Simulated assay, not measured.
Amino acid sequence: MSSATIATPQIDGAKLHDFMLKAVGDMGASMHGVLILLGDRLGLYKAMADSKPITSTELASRTKTSERYIREWLNANAASGYVTYDPATKSYTLPPEQAVVLAMEHGPAFLPGAFEIVLSCFNDVDKIEEAFRTGKGVGWHEHHHALYHGVERFFRPGYLMNLTTNWIPALTGVEQKLRDGAKVADIGCGLGASTILMAKAFPNSEFYGFDYHDASIAMAREAAKREGIGDRLHFEVASAKNYPGKDYDFVAFFDCLHDMGDPKGAAAYVHSTMKPDGTWMIVEPYAEDATEGNLNPVGRVFYTASTMICVPASLSQEVGAALGAQAGEKRIGEVVTAGGFKNFHRATQTPFNLVYEARA
């Protein structure tokens, strides 16, 4: 071994200081995520949703919780910018903008479900560490149960805001087919939020939701019963390459194609189950084709989720293509056309999603 001195990189003190502040901010955000979960579970944000000032004593009384814990929780939320604090009255307020995000579960911007996904990631860190070492996958069904509820609650607001009002109308002739009466398959339906929303919007159509995860299908069936639409909505355990039925007018994949081990095989199977004039809608996370185009706050979330959930899911299956959540339009298009579809294009988009239309 050489005895030569290894040169130490010169440190820029100002850059070090700025990065430390960033890291401390990330540390605070990570820890505060737990308090968001508690606020959601205990109904604390909902109890403040009127955006009127409230003291820790009043909030504790309103939610039947301990005042001392509530006081500390409120101060953490005030330090994080989630609530405001008035020192003159020692009261706290949840501003209306924060209330939309934190308290209005059926609104367009509800976010606490995302922190359930974060909870599952922390619970699954040992499994993912082992996957890093071995290169093996971790199946969707192997994750902490918080993932399934978190994903459903996180994606549902986007579906409520866009699915029947923007995404489906952007597809060629699909909305009219659904109004007249169509046969629809929702693949990778999870807990059924997307399937149920479509079934309620288009009562003349028949809907089939498929997912390989039996526990999710059981919860989807219960949700359909609660909505009173079980007669037109059928949930079954099946994968993207063996779901039953033929002659579908419309097939939908919501944020799941990139998770699949064999997405090209799935595309070919979809092609084989559709009517000649059928449409396949593929909803994917927003992504540019070039890596550098995704190095932003949204890309940060999606790349992190992809590391913990999407790539492990794909690597646990046959082929293991591991497209990742930031696959981009070019790679998705290659998958779709390899499955036999001749027409593929971006139909519409949001800041968080790309919506593709594929036709035979």
Rank of each mutant, 00 (worst) to 15 (best):
Gln326His: 14
Tyr148Ile: 03
Leu38Met: 15
Ala29His: 10
Ser91Lys: 09
Asn204His: 11
Ala266Val: 09
Phe302Pro: 02
Arg359Lys: 15
Gly209Ser: 01
Ile11Lys: 10
Ala170Arg: 09
Ala7Ser: 14
Leu37Cys: 01
Gly158Trp: 06
Ser306His: 05
Pro169Ala: 07
Leu323His: 01
Ala49Pro: 10
Ile282Met: 13
Asn343Phe: 14
Arg133His: 14
Val184Asn: 00
Phe19Pro: 05
Ala224Pro: 01
Arg226Gly: 10
Arg346Glu: 12
Met1Trp: 05
Ala218His: 05
Arg232Gly: 10
Leu74Thr: 03
Asp180Ile: 14
Pro351Arg: 03
Lys64Thr: 15
Leu74Gly: 00
Leu44Asp: 07
His143Tyr: 14
His149Phe: 13
Tyr212Cys: 08
Ala224Gln: 05
Gly13Pro: 12
Thr63Val: 07
Ile282Lys: 05
Leu197Ser: 06
Asp262Cys: 00
Tyr82Gly: 04
Glu206Asp: 13
Ile36Asp: 03
Leu171Arg: 03
Ala170Glu: 05
Pro297Ser: 02
Gly228Arg: 09
Lys127Phe: 00
Glu72Ser: 15
Asn123Pro: 04
Ala347Tyr: 12
Asp124Val: 05
His144Lys: 07
Val118Gly: 06
Met27Glu: 15
Arg71Gln: 13
Val125Pro: 11
Tyr208Gln: 02
Gln317Ser: 07
Leu354Gly: 04
Thr279Asp: 11
Ile117His: 04
Pro285Glu: 01
Val335Tyr: 06
Tyr148Thr: 03
Tyr159Leu: 15
Glu67Tyr: 09
Leu16Ile: 09
Arg300Val: 02
Ala4Phe: 14
